[in-house]
Design a protein around this nucleic acid. Structure first.
Lengths: 204, 204
DNA sequence: CTTATCATGTAATCCGTTACATGATTGC
DNA sequence: GCAATCATGTAACGGATTACATGATAAG
């Protein structure tokens, strides 16, 4: 139910039209709560019916400027203080990690290093925003800066983790090669030292 | 479209029934790709129609044991190697941060410190898993360990960030109080005692 | 024989995505 | 006049959530 609260939150800063809100979503909330135009207009109508926002002014081209109501502000406060956040839920990049075992170690490493680069690029983008934005001492921007810092720290951790993980794959490969060598020495029917591409791991 | 790939991924490790898969989802994939029972059973039927999995055996109580097909494995490999991950998209905990300005600084701090505690508890839970799980040297568990490390590192970063953020709120409050005092005195008198614990790292 | 577990499914509803449709006003 | 921008909406589709429905079998 958080699209509703994202809209209420933006309107708590200043009145805006659906069109304005879309710009705000794309400018500042893309990475935490993306929304499409359909969604925003639909939600504004629902919020109006529920009495949490109201049309404060009509402008040219059928523009409707929405403002948050007292009920809306109460709902926003309630959400901020009483409703427990759930945290990020789905992460398809990490989901893939669980299944990297079906790839060759080299392919798996390549995947992890790509992840590292993606994180590094994200970090650079956040730094860019940090430099570009004017961080005046207003309360509003204190929290904007805090959210940005989250992005900066998370992308750093992500990159470090991915590089470490790629390295772990190397170590594991080495360990496995060692085991194979030992097994070869111990038995009479040695196998090839490289596994082609179709090796299954059903022997557990 | 990643539910499909989560199911394929689990079936690539061993054949399983829908019931088994649900246990696996709840045991190991809850935090990266949660799925409900309806979804899993529905997806298995779709996957069977698409020829990516097949019913390998029938058991008691109408149990259907599914196995991944060659086409399914090819699809899984394709997804792992060719399809770019999108990363986590929605984060309602961070979304709230953007709107903490409508709360009092104390309420905002309380929110951030609760986030820190949640992260700390998550970290402890991951450590518990780390200690409990048997990390044999199989390839499968290499990647399980890597995914767990992600959780460990991210929860640490999250906790540190939240504590830092709570601190920032204090500094901002202090700055604002300072401004008010200066405005009251009505004269210019620059002071240098502020900024208690605010170590910056993106040196500007 | 009764309960817990195993096992599969359907229906309703909501949320999110993509695409389509339409029109008013401003600036050149 | 024409293009860019401003501005709002609807329709179709698929994914996710919740609730409901049903029954078989193993264990006590």
């Amino acid at each position: 139910m958080s699209l509703r609260h994202a809209v209420l939150g933006l309107l708590s800063e200043s009145p805006a039209s659906g069109y304005d809100l879309m710009k705000l979503f794309n400018a500042s909330l893309t990475s935490v709560w993306p929304a499409t135009q359909s969604q925003v207009y639909g939600e504004l109508n629902k919020l109006t019916t529920a009495g949490l926002v109201e049309v404060a002014a009509h402008g040219p081209r059928g523009r409707k400027e929405y403002a948050i109501t007292d009920d809306g502000l109460a709902e926003l406060r309630h959400w901020l203080t009483e409703v427990a956040p759930t945290g990020p839920q789905r992460h398809d990049g990490l989901l893939r990690v669980f299944f990297l075992g079906i790839l060759t170690p080299l392919e798996a490493q390549s995947y992890l290093l790509t992840q590292a680069e993606t994180a590094a690029r994200a970090h650079t983008a956040y730094e860019q925003i940090d430099r570009t934005a004017e961080w005046d001492d207003e309360m509003i921007s204190v929290y904007g800066r805090i959210a940005l810092e989250y992005g900066l720290r998370m992308s750093t951790t992500m990159e470090e983790w991915a590089r470490w993980a790629a390295d772990e794959v190397t170590s594991a490969k080495a360990r496995k090669a060692g085991e194979l060598a030992r097994a070869q020495r111990g038995r009479e029917r040695p196998e090839q030292d490289e596994q082609p591409a179709g090796e299954r791991h059903s022997g557990d």
